[in-house]
Nucleic acid binder design. Structure first.
Length: 430
DNA sequence: TCTGGGGTCCTAGGACCC
DNA sequence: TCTGGGGTCCTAGGACCC
C-alpha cells in the first residue's frame, strides 16, 4: 500500500456494537468485559470520564460507579465480529486499497486521490459507515502510518474535527506542534519498556524522537524503533503484512469459568481447543506439523500451589484433521497434567504451519494414501459446513457436560442480533 | 468469588558446519 | 598459559500491538 495512509478506527467499538441494538445505552457509562466477565476491555466515553482504566478487573470496579448508571456487558464476539465485517464492507466502497488491521481498525490507501478532495471524501465515508452500520468511526490521514495513527487520535479527541483529521505533509507547523505535545509512550510501537530507556537518552516527546538520528536509534534499540523515528519524519518505513496471508501460528485457549483439578475436565477443554484450532487451520487452508498444549494454575491465587507447563507434540505428518490434532493435544496433556493442582486455563497452539496445497513430506513423515486424504477432507468439510450454517459447536468430537468447569461465565450477554435467527431483533409495527 | 485472548516481528545466542 | 574465523540455521525470549 502507498500513502497517503488513512487509519479508520471504530470509536469504543464493542460498546458501539451494543448500542446499535440497545439505544438506551447512549449517554450511559458502559463497559464491555473480557471472557469470563473478567476485565474491562472497552469503555464508553462516559466510563472513561469516570476514571475507569482499560483492563480493570470487574470485581475491582468502584462500587460507587453503579450510582452513575453503569452498565456492564459480557463480550459478544459473534456480534462484534459480524459488525466488524459490515464496517469493512462499507470501507471497501471508499478506497480500492483496504487492509483490515484489527477487529476495529483498518488501513486505507489513498494514493492518487486528489488531496483537495480528501477531507470531504473522508467525511462522507464516515457518515456512510455510521448510517449503514450504526458504528461511529474516526479517520486519520497522513503520509505515514505512524502519523496517521496520531491524526486519528487527534480526530477522536477533538470534536471540532468531526471525526476526521488530515496531515497533508509531515513538515507542517501543526504536525510539529502535535509531536511536541505527544509523549513517546503515546506513539504506535513504543511501549512501557522502551519509554523508560528512551527517557535515559533524554528523549521524551515524539518530536524528540523525530529529531534523533535514526541510525543512533537503531544502534540503541532496533530497526523497529528506527522505523518509527523515520515515519515521524514523513518517510514511510512500516509495511504491514498482507492480511490475506495465512497465520503462522494458531492459538486457542481460554480461562475456565472456575478452577478445576479434574483430569477429565481438562481433557474436555483441550479437546475443544484442539478442535477449534483445527477449524481455523482448515479455514486458511494450512496444515500443522506440531501441536503445543499448555496448562496453568491461577497465578493470582497466592494461597494455592502453582504449576504451569507446556509441551510440543510433533505430528507424524502435517495435518488439519481434527482427529489428528485432538489426539496429539491429548497426548501432550497426559505428559504435563499433574494431579493436585487447580487449573484456571488450558490451551492449544498449532505450530509450524504449511500450505495445504503444496505440502512436502519431511524425511520422517509417513505418507498418506490419496483415498484416505480425500475421505478425511470430505468429513472435515461437512463438519465445518454444518457448524458454519448452524452455529459453532453444533457438531463436535466427544461429549460435553453442561456443568464443565471450563464453560465461560458471561452473566451480561446480549443477544447475537445479527447472526442467529432466534435472536434477531424484533420490530413492532403499528 | 472474581484478573482476556489472540497475534507479529526482531534479536541474541547456541548448535553446527567447514 | 594457551584455545581460529567465519558462516548458517534454529529457538527462546523480549517487546509490541489490538
Amino acid at each position: 500500500m502507498r500513502g497517503p495512509f488513512a487509519l479508520v478506527d471504530c470509536n469504543n467499538f464493542y460498546v458501539s456494537c451494543e448500542r446499535v441494538f440497545r439505544p438506551h445505552l447512549e449517554g450511559v457509562p458502559v463497559g464491555v468485559l473480557s471472557n469470563n466477565d473478567g476485565c474491562i476491555i472497552a469503555r464508553s466515553n462516559e466510563l472513561k470520564q469516570l476514571g475507569v482504566e482499560m483492563g480493570t478487573p470487574a470485581h475491582m470496579l468502584d462500587k460507587r460507579l453503579w450510582r452513575y448508571g453503569l452498565v456492564l456487558c459480557s463480550s459478544n464476539y459473534e456480534l462484534f465480529g459480524d459488525m466488524s465485517a459490515r464496517v469493512l464492507n462499507v470501507l471497501r466502497e471508499w478506497s480500492p486499497d483496504v487492509e483490515p488491521y484489527s477487529v476495529d481498525e483498518s488501513w486505507l490507501g489513498f494514493a492518487g486521490f486528489d488531496p483537495a478532495a480528501l477531507p470531504n471524501h473522508c467525511q462522507r465515508m464516515r457518515q456512510t459507515v455510521r448510517q449503514w452500520t450504526g458504528i461511529p468511526v474516526s479517520v486519520g490521514v497522513a503520509p505515514t502510518r505512524t502519523l496517521a495513527k496520531l491524526a486519528n487520535r487527534y480526530a477522536k479527541k477533538n470534536p471540532a474535527t468531526q471525526g476526521v483529521h488530515i496531515f497533508e505533509s509531515a513538515h507542517s507547523p501543526d504536525v510539529r506542534a502535535l509531536l511536541e505535545r505527544t509523549p513517546v509512550s503515546d506513539l504506535w510501537g513504543v511501549g512501557g519498556r522502551i519509554t523508560v530507556r528512551l527517557k535515559d537518552l533524554g528523549i521524551h516527546t515524539a518530536w524528540d524522537l523525530a529529531q534523533a538520528e535514526p541510525k543512533r536509534i537503531r544502534k540503541h534499540f532496533s530497526v523497529v524503533l528506527e522505523r518509527t523515528a523515520l515515519e515521524l519524519r514523513g518517510i514511510p518505513a512500516i509495511d504491514m503484512n498482507d492480511f490475506n496471508e495465512p497465520k503462522k501460528n494458531i492459538m486457542t485457549s481460554r480461562s475456565f469459568g472456575r478452577l478445576t483439578g479434574d483430569a477429565g475436565e481438562l481433557r474436555e477443554a483441550v479437546r475443544q481447543h484442539a478442535q477449534r484450532g483445527a477449524e481455523k487451520l482448515r479455514d486458511q487452508r494450512s496444515l500443522a506439523r506440531a501441536v503445543m498444549v499448555f496448562v496453568q494454575t491461577n497465578q493470582h491465587r497466592l494461597d494455592l500451589a502453582q504449576y504451569s507447563n507446556s509441551v510440543v507434540v510433533a505430528l507424524s505428518r502435517p495435518s488439519s484433521d481434527s482427529r489428528d490434532i485432538i489426539a496429539a493435544a491429548q497426548f501432550g496433556l497426559e505428559r504435563i497434567y499433574r494431579k493436585g493442582y487447580l487449573f484456571i486455563k488450558a490451551g492449544v497452539m498449532l505450530l509450524d504451519l504449511i500450505d495445504a496445497d503444496q505440502q512436502q513430506l519431511g524425511i520422517f513423515e509417513t505418507p498418506i494414501t490419496e483415498a484416505k486424504r480425500a475421505r478425511s477432507e470430505k468429513l472435515m468439510a461437512v463438519m465445518d459446513q454444518i457448524n458454519k450454517l448452524q452455529g459453532r459447536g453444533t457438531v463436535r468430537w466427544g461429549m460435553t457436560g453442561d456443568s464443565a468447569a471450563w464453560h465461560l461465565r458471561s452473566e451480561h450477554l446480549s443477544p447475537r442480533w445479527t447472526t442467529r435467527w432466534e435472536e434477531l431483533p424484533r420490530v413492532k409495527l403499528w
